[in-house]
Simulated scan of single mutants.
Amino acid sequence: MKVLNSGRSGLIGLLCLALAFVTTGCGGGNQQQGEGGKIPMTFTGAGNLSWLNVFVAEDEGIFDKHGIESTVRVFDVGFLGTEAVLAGEAQTAGSVEFPLLGLLGQGAGLVVPAVVATAEDQRIVVNDSIQKPEDLRGKKIGLIGGSAFEYSFQEYLNHFNIPREEVEFVNVDAAEQVAVMARGDIDGFLNVEPVVSRALNSINNAHVLEPGTEEVYTTRILLQMNKNWVSSNPDGVKKALAALIEANDFIKANQERAAEIGAKWTKSDKETVTSFLQDAKFDYTVHYDASVRESMEKIANWMMANGKLQKMPDLDQVFAVDHLREVAPEQVKE
């Protein structure tokens, strides 16, 4: 078992490799067997609760039980893990639709075997000059550029009939958002736990704007793998899916222990994790259904309309759910 932490600054070389792999279609191939015949796999994620199932599977020995010699690599944001997969540095990643579509638009050889988490976890943290959605006019809001936050926040503005040009979007990395808001350089930001609690606990008069983006958006974490690796390692895909299914069962049956694990990996306190798991309606059921594709198509159409994607990817080639159908056929509803 290995645990690695990777910041955004250390990923420049990896990103260059990833871009090369996008254009060459590499990064797959046969996987060497590890100790005791186990399959070596690096799982990536971000340091937030969307990856609690991965953290639980690691800490509770579930990956090992399913024949996986696991390494977990944690990035500032989830889509950096996708770049690691493309560079051949990891076998799995997870992100929402927006960054995945951007990479698919560049020709990335990625497939999605399943959705592994859903939640209403985004929160708009603002200062006391903003008490209702309409107060966002004329304000500066920090967002991670090229992420789902950009899409969901624009949909939020549309929902409340606030013109996009009346709110200034400021590109701020997740790790910097609290400090930038504390300095007064932005009036708020959109993110998830644990960043939200850090802001509420350290910035005077910071609060969560209600209603939030749950009005317009549901987080779906799409499991992503290199297409060539999947073709060469079907057993690895099935083992990973089976492990994440068992991790979900563990989370539901052992909520206190799961919260302890989540607190450790997200550097939060157990009470905050317990509360947020309930408030954000986290669900780690490994599944695929028609709504997953519909959401991908909707976001792709938005990206094309906003000049962020040239054409719709071939989603028939992206969603590779045959492995899930073998492992848990009841979880595939097309």
Score class of each variant (00 low, 15 high):
Tyr151Glu: 05
Gly28Ala: 10
Val3Ala: 00
Asn127Pro: 08
Glu256Pro: 01
Gln131Arg: 14
Met296Val: 15
Leu17Phe: 04
Tyr156Ser: 04
Gln131His: 06
Leu315Gln: 02
Lys264Ala: 07
Glu246Gln: 12
Asp314Thr: 11
Glu271Phe: 06
Glu168Tyr: 03
Arg164Asp: 12
Lys2Ser: 04
Met41Gly: 08
Gly188Asn: 05
Val208His: 09
Met41Pro: 06
Thr24Phe: 00
Lys227Ser: 12
Thr92Ser: 07
Glu294Phe: 05
Val56Gly: 07
Asn204Thr: 13
Val292Ser: 01
Ile245Glu: 01
Pro113Val: 11
Ser232Thr: 00
Val273Cys: 13
Leu244Cys: 03
Asn204Val: 12
Thr92Gln: 05
Ala148Ser: 15
Val126Met: 09
Ser152Glu: 15
Ala90Asn: 09
Val208Tyr: 08
Val56Thr: 07
Val172Asn: 03
Ala242Glu: 01
Glu83Lys: 11
Asn171Lys: 09
Met304Gln: 15
Gly109His: 12
Arg137Tyr: 00
Glu215Cys: 02
Asp314Val: 10
Glu60Lys: 13
Lys38Cys: 02
Ile68Asp: 03
Phe79Cys: 06
Leu309Lys: 07
Gly10Gln: 13
Val167Asn: 01
Trp229Ala: 09
His207Ile: 03
Val54Trp: 06
Glu334Met: 01
Thr266Gly: 01
Thr219Cys: 00
Gly10Leu: 12
Ile299Asn: 06
Gln32Leu: 11
Val208Gln: 11
Pro40Asn: 13
Asp289Thr: 13
Phe149Leu: 09
Gln32Gly: 09
Thr272Tyr: 01
Ser9Thr: 15
Gly61Asn: 04
Leu309Ile: 03
Phe149Cys: 12
Arg220Tyr: 11
Gly145Thr: 12
Gly37Gln: 00
Val116Tyr: 15
Ala206Pro: 07
Val22Ala: 07
Val72Phe: 01
Arg325Glu: 13
Gly34Val: 00
Thr118Tyr: 05
Val230Pro: 02
Ser9Arg: 15
Gly25Ala: 09
Gly262Glu: 02
Ala108Met: 04
Arg123Tyr: 09
Pro329Phe: 06
